[in-house]
């Protein structure tokens, strides 16, 4: 056999390679079609891998940048109970970032590299976190609307075709459920509180409603990655479907809060069995995405500073491990 192999021409070898790739690809497609999970060492198309790394990284970045607007209120939380809740929530976000970086690392891209891309602006995070938290009620609005939108997005991801991502999402969704509830409860308390508190809650909802709807991404016909991601089951529902689902859930919740959603066109459509809602200002969306939101600069600069100022700490621990023979191979 060795002689035969040696005699094979390059063309034959290439043909064999192509055949093998085709077989792998068929196996991959079949697994996705059968709703099986793809695991880290399985063969996968390069574009699938790249798409996943991009999505998981962006998701991880969003968690850790998302700590900032809420951490902004930890030191001013108006009761000790609320302070404990908020600290635990911001801590969870760091934890969720870690789960997601860990999932991304299963595809061979290290966290350091991903952070580097975040810090240099080559990878994005959710634009929602480029809006400022101006009052205490914003903490509630973020919990109710922003986390609510995130959960609507994330629950289907628990069935994502990539195993490590799906498993991270299961853990995250389980932990997130308290996030949305605490936000809702916070707003409810304000809404039923003094007139000043009620006004604070309404103002926060006025400011966070539209950006929350933008969190689902551009309309389906303008979404660059949607179709392929759906085919690969990295994404399970379209942007517009999820957005509609969120609106339908949020409207009755707003009524129960005694707060108004800032959309004069919002009304029940008997025929569709869904709510109609007004046009989203996509110019604002693209503008914030491009870096012109109220806090883009501030968020990235805080993240970068924390990382740079922490370098000596990370170096010290590495040096200690090396000195004491404790470093992992």
């Amino acid at each position: 056999m060795a002689t035969a192999a040696a005699h094979r021409t390059t063309a034959e070898a290439q043909a064999g390679e192509a055949e093998r790739t085709a077989a792998y690809e068929a196996a991959f497609d079949a697994a996705v079609a059968a709703d099986e999970r793809i695991e880290p060492r399985d063969w996968m198309p390069d574009a699938y891998r790249a798409s996943l790394v991009r999505q998981m990284a962006q998701h991880a970045h969003s968690e850790i940048i998302g700590m900032q607007p809420e951490a902004n209120w930890i030191t001013r939380a108006p009761s000790l109970r609320r302070k404990a809740i908020l600290m635990a929530k911001v801590q969870d976000e760091a934890g969720h970032g870690l789960y997601l970086y860990s999932a991304a690392e299963t595809l061979g891209t290290g966290r350091e590299e991903l952070l580097d891309k975040l810090h240099s602006g080559r990878q994005k995070y959710s634009s929602i976190f480029n809006y400022p938290t101006l009052t205490w009620a914003d903490v509630g609005a973020i919990g109710w609307l922003v986390d609510g939108a995130a959960i609507t997005n994330q629950v289907p991801l628990c069935r994502c075709s990539y195993g490590p991502y799906a498993r991270a999402m299961v853990r995250i969704c389980k932990e997130e459920s308290f996030h949305q509830r605490q936000g809702y409860e916070l707003l409810l308390h304000l809404s039923k509180g003094t007139p000043e508190q009620h006004a604070m809650a309404q103002d926060a909802v006025d400011r966070w409603w539209w950006p929350s709807l933008m969190m689902f991404g551009p309309p389906d016909d303008e979404s660059a990655h949607s179709a392929q991601s759906m085919a690969w089951k990295i994404k399970r529902h379209s942007n517009d479907e999820l957005r509609q689902r969120f609106v339908d859930i949020a409207v009755p919740q707003a009524e129960a809060l005694g707060l108004t959603l800032p959309d004069p066109d919002l009304r029940w459509n008997e025929e569709r069995g869904q709510y109609d809602f007004g046009a989203i200002d996509w110019d604002e969306f693209w503008n914030v995405l491009k870096g012109n939101g109220p806090c883009n600069e501030q968020r990235i600069s805080q993240r970068r500073t924390a990382h740079e100022e922490g370098a000596w700490v990370r170096e010290a621990a590495s040096a200690y491990a090396a000195k004491h023979g404790k470093a992992a191979a």
Binding site: Q68, A71, Q91, Y101, E309, G310
Partner: peptide
């Protein structure tokens, strides 16, 4: 919160 030297 948000300023630690490493996420862990």
């Amino acid at each position: 919160a948000g300023h630690a030297p490493v996420l862990e």
